[in-house]
Design a protein around this nucleic acid. Sequence first.
DNA 1: AATATATACATAAGATGCTTATGTATGTCC
DNA 2: GGACATACATAAGCATCTTATGTATATATT
Lengths: 111, 111
Amino acid sequence: MDKSTLYKGCLEPIVMRLLKDNGRMYGYEITQRVKVITRGELKITEGALYPLLHKLEEKGVVETEIESIGNRRRKYYTLTRTGKKQAVTAMEEVKTFIDSLNLILNPKTAW
Amino acid sequence: MDKSTLYKGCLEPIVMRLLKDNGRMYGYEITQRVKVITRGELKITEGALYPLLHKLEEKGVVETEIESIGNRRRKYYTLTRTGKKQAVTAMEEVKTFIDSLNLILNPKTAW
DNA sequence: AATATATACATAAGATGCTTATGTATGTCC
DNA sequence: GGACATACATAAGCATCTTATGTATATATT
């Protein structure tokens, strides 16, 4: 099995968590942050991330701000008020999900 | 976000784990077992499970045995020798994956 | 006796969420 | 000057799931 198929569906909560913790991030920064935090285990591809960010913006979960550093531009993303609420719910859902996974995959451990 | 999207990609390791633990199971049994273990949180649909089981059989990960109880038939699945090896690897991969997820989603907790 | 629900399998169409590939452009290091 | 990093974006294609549908037997309900 391809290792990366596991994380399908988890990208959205990951992004929301990072925005919740850090307040304001740009796309490329998110990819790098995930790589560092997970010691290279999780690698977010740009082909997955950018369309997701656009979708979240359309849904009003995040809002953007473009910042220029010299001739370079960065697009910063911030959670909206609604986004912050949804982030809380999303975190609970992921927690429950991981608990369920652990119940099956680590039946002997008491989580 | 639809809650069930989270578990995309996790069905295969779940099935392998159950077969590894229980030796021999049939499809419907797997769906019920997951429901009980996770207290109703994870519901495996038959439309997802049966094609997966067939795929695993094609790949030589599992082998089947049909058993009749009265007029009813059950198709039992067992891990092959290769399947058992792959199950070990799969479990390690899922463990690493969950660890990575936790690093991002529970940054304050030391796992 | 009829109906609903549970058991048990299966497949097909469609949606979703990713990978891979490609493109543009600037900045930095050697 | 070329390689690599930074920074964005999109499109084609694939894998994995949901939803819908179908078949058939067994059991419980009314």
